[in-house]
């Protein structure tokens, strides 16, 4: 769940960042093109003059050396933003894995999301369950379940299914005597054509 939220946030950040960079570049490119085509007032920015003319040189000469500190600061800010962006990409792509074995002949890892999907599918195999979602929280795996169950099903059926089928399967799979589990169950009326599965 946390991973999903991160992924969404990263995606939004990427979109905004890319849009901003694109906008800045488009404005710069557009003005260069406009200047070259003589779209600006010719007494202010003539098409046939160099961009770095006497005025620009004079500006830098006047404000030196302070201006260079500003330029350095701006470059530093851009560099920090770029590094942060890189790290965020890495975080999103890092697959979370549960290391179940680490021996001299190699490590064995299970993808947390893969395992969680299997657990959810296992929980959903009960007729009393409409929908289930699972998350595994490591490193000592803990199972968090959200279950949407049929309110008309016998109350015992769901807990029996969890304690006698789904959770023993998790314990066997991970070879652990104890795997803590938390289930949040919401009850819904029996299937009707308008039922919305959240």
């Amino acid at each position: 769940m946390i991973k999903g939220m991160n992924g969404r946030r990263t995606g939004r950040g990427n979109r905004w960042g890319l849009a901003l960079v694109g906008l800045v570049l488009a404005i710069l490119g557009g003005s260069a093109l406009a200047r070259g085509l003589g779209a600006f007032p010719q007494n202010w920015a003539a098409a046939r003059t160099t961009v770095v003319d006497g005025n620009v040189v004079a500006f830098f000469a006047r404000t030196s050396p302070g201006i260079w500190w500003l330029v350095a600061l701006a470059a530093l800010v851009v560099a920090v933003l770029a590094v942060r962006w890189l790290l965020v990409q890495g975080r999103r792509d890092a697959r979370r894995v549960l290391r179940i074995e680490d021996g001299p002949t190699g490590v064995t890892e299970v993808s947390e999301s893969g395992m969680a999907q299997a657990v959810a599918a296992d929980v959903e195999s009960s007729p009393a369950v409409f929908h289930a979602a699972a998350h595994l929280v490591g490193p000592r795996p803990e199972v968090r379940l959200r279950v949407v169950a049929d309110e008309s099903a016998p109350m015992g059926e769901l807990s029996r299914h969890l304690s006698a089928v789904a959770l023993p399967h998790v314990r066997d799979a991970l070879d652990r005597d104890r795997v803590p589990a938390v289930a949040r169950v919401s009850l819904e009326p029996s299937p009707s054509p308008h039922r919305v599965v959240r």
Binding site: R95, P104, T105, G106, E109, S111, G114, M115, Q117, A173
Partner: peptide
């Protein structure tokens, strides 16, 4: 050494 990642379970 054989490293195994179970990417998909089910």
């Amino acid at each position: 050494r054989l490293d195994i990642t179970m990417t998909d379970v089910g």
